[in-house]
Amino acid sequence: MIQPHDSVIVRTFGHIVIPVAQLFGVYVLMFGQYGPGGGFVGGVVIAGSMIMAILIFGIESEDSVLARKILHGDGVGLLIFGGVGGLCLIGGGEFLNYSHLSIPGLDETSRHQVGILLTQVGVAVDVAVTGVSIAISLSFEEDEISQDEVTD
């Protein structure tokens, strides 16, 4: 596993930059309908901030608790995306045809807006979880396995 960094400069820098990066990721995700960005980029920025927390403070520390918790959500983003498509099916339309998203009190354009926003959130969650998961997989060292084999 990754050891925490012991430099004061790096730790202070991380405490300042990581919340800003997470806020910027959420901003990019939510602003994707009006400017450059969207679900994929927002998810990558959020994943990058959490990977930075893991690399600076270590996987076991309190600062990377979000990265540990998010690992259990593998597949949730895909479920959100597919769930929006399923809601469109229930509403009587084709898969991912947001005109049939059965939300009362919304006209057709607003249904498309809600559908785009929800699917973007799904993509962002999926990309963020996958990024953190791949980073932890790559940094996983096989010390524990080799020690087990030695004791056996």
């Binding site: 309908q33 009006y34 057709e108 354009t109 559908g115 699917t119």
Partner: peptide, 26 residues
């Protein structure tokens, strides 16, 4: 007019071509 999204790239990716994006997410 159809999607209410000023960014056309997002509208194409997430609405007109959302099936492709679904497969990419998979």
């Amino acid at each position: 007019r159809q999607t209410g999204t000023p960014n056309v790239v997002t509208a194409v990716l997430m609405d007109y071509r959302s099936f492709d994006t679904f497969i990419e997410t998979i």
